[in-house]
Write a protein that binds this DNA or RNA. Structure first.
Lengths: 353, 353
DNA sequence: CCCGGCGCTGACAACGTTGTCCAGGGGCTA
DNA sequence: TAGCCCCTGGACAACGTTGTCAGCGCCGGG
């Protein structure tokens, strides 16, 4: 029984045809196949046709591993973020991908789960793959492990949080200014006792936002009680406990500021579950989120454009890859206060003596 | 001036040290370095120490491109989805990543933007990288282009929608059953004129959900007007127009079924913007989404576990990579109706004669 | 004392591609 | 018609790693 079946039957499972096979089948030299595959000039139309036929007949596809090894550039960039499932990072990674695609690069990504060790492990794995560049939302505070890589030419841009102990490009949101605006907004609406529920104190944005809180309070000449500030993990239990404690204290807070969108969502739930006669509590959240306008009241937020963050970072990365020199930059993107109702609620009458 | 500066100065920018360099510096053979790097046995502690020192001194990192070329396996899998920024895919890709990580594999991903050509381009680029396997949320309907790749041993699992014109594993949600349940739920609450706003008719889930709609209507002996069904892109303008038309018709629908979470969100907005005296319209959406319970009324949804979808697909993929044979499987995961209020609103009195 | 075997090490080829370089043939010009 | 140049095609090395295999020295047993 003669085997006239299509390509797939002519080679054993798991083995792919190479340019050599294509060359043999087309009756040409190896390099000619390479030229055809890469669209290089210098091949007769007739020869090219023969090669193309051999390629489709064998189901050949260029092995990029070999190509990368030879050329030194991988046409891929790595993205390390905290959690792919967090809605804040969706638009960001999509924006990075879009820019990468425009530059013909693939995106390899991974989540650090806010674990510095895992971040390092991931970053080094990406470096071993010889990605051309890295976009990192850092979890740790010491990125000296990156120094040899950066020195070897791996372009690196940090996003949302700056690098630790290493000099690198960074694209950030104005956490300090945004928070100060938020608190000033609440103060302008009559609040004096304002609670802050934020992320882990080790995270740069968390401390910046806290700094903004303190700045606005002190600008207004208002005292800050320790009990009004809570930093910690953003899991619902912790946030719920922190917010509840502030609301049920002897001198309860009349407004809350939530340090990121995870916190905001949980605080919204806590407020929604309060028994009816309770006085409404004002709320401003850092980060916009979908449907914030449809809740009642709408949630006032400090919006940062996460897609813009990603775009800016990726643009900078590719500029570096294209050879742009100069000292590491720090780009800070402005935030925008979007009033929707929850931040404009006045404090209860009794609390403004 | 003698160069005693650290490693980075000893090699010119952009060139990385190789095992050969390490071997030379440690005064050992190439293969010994390889052994140390890979933790293979048969190296004297003393030799190992010398090699380790050379590695850190030079800032050596193994070049995985070469390793991959040599070994044939890349320890990476590709994920192609529709849009990284869509909240439905966040948990899914996170789940896939988690499983990949457990198997020591990296995740390379890309968005097809619902464009079949872009999907193919991406998939083939991933194949050229020789990913070990692929998880695909297909945009197109003809995946014959994958046949040579699959024959060559690239494990492939389709998620959320089945493959077209090619026999492959698929992990799906029960779109048909979920929709039928949703419509039956609305019918049970007294509705007779129910609108369906869905995704593009080319998308498998969209037609399945429409089929469920028709099945439930016909089970209840209810007629379906053409004007009650609208399939199309899920951009807000189209959805807004479709929903508004159904609500303002001479015989308006009293309930709406939204074919996915993008649609649901827009419909919620449309309903929220209706002038006050309008009768409340019931709504059930396919896909759960964050905060659905906090809107008033809460939005009744057909929940599908997108993380579970991803986990199941990735598990299946790695089973295939571990050599599991057998015919392509189709796994269908159940959906769950979560009543929250919007689906239990009765029709206005006048419409139940 | 000699031999077999074992533990450690290194030389070498191969993975599949691309860059360099050279050869041959055909057409054009003097 | 002869010589030169350009156009096409191919041989070969190199990218950095790992698998194979062979060699060397040392130890224990006969």
């Amino acid at each position: 029984m003669t085997d006239t079946a299509p390509s797939t039957a002519t080679r054993r499972y798991g083995t792919r045809p190479t340019m050599k096979d294509v060359a043999a089948r087309a009756g040409v030299g190896l390099k000619t196949v390479s030229r055809v595959v890469n669209g290089e000039p210098g091949v007769t139309p007739d020869t090219e046709r023969r090669v193309q036929e051999a390629i489709t007949a064998l189901g050949f596809r260029r092995n990029d591993s070999a190509r990368i090894l030879r050329k030194g550039r991988t046409a891929s960039i790595g993205l390390v973020l905290e959690d792919l499932a967090d809605p804040f990072y969706g638009p960001l990674s999509r924006a990075v991908e879009e820019i990468a695609r425009a530059h013909g690069a693939l995106l390899i990504n991974g989540s650090s789960a806010e674990d510095p060790e895992r971040e390092q492990e991931l970053v080094l794995a990406l470096c071993a793959r010889r990605v051309d560049g890295l976009v990192i939302i850092p979890a740790g505070h010491d990125h000296r492990y990156l120094a040899p890589e950066m020195a070897a030419g791996v372009a690196t841009v940090f996003v949302d949080r700056p690098a630790g102990r290493v000099d690198a490009d960074a694209v950030l949101s104005d956490s300090f200014g945004g928070s100060r605006d938020a608190i000033a907004h609440l103060i302008a609406h009559g609040h004096r006792r304002i609670g802050f529920v934020g992320d882990l104190p080790g995270i740069h944005t968390a401390t910046e936002r806290l700094r903004g809180y303190h700045a606005a309070m002190s600008d207004a000449g208002l005292p800050v009680h320790d009990a009004w500030v809570s930093l910690g993990p953003t899991d619902p239990e912790r946030v719920r406990a922190a917010a509840t404690a502030m609301l049920n204290a002897a001198e309860p807070v009349t407004a809350l500021f939530a340090g990121n969108n995870r916190v905001t969502v949980t605080v919204v739930r806590v407020l929604a579950e309060r028994p009816e006669p309770a006085a409404p509590v004002a709320l401003v959240g850092f980060d916009d989120f979908e449907l914030a306008d449809l809740l009642s009241p709408g949630i006032t937020v400090i919006a940062q454009d996460s897609a813009q963050l990603g775009r800016t970072a990726a643009d900078l990365l590719f500029r570096r890859l294209d050879g742009a020199g100069g000292d590491p930059q720090r780009v800070v993107l402005p935030t925008r206060l979007i009033p929707r109702g929850s931040g404009e609620l006045p404090p209860p009458a009794t609390s403004t003596p």
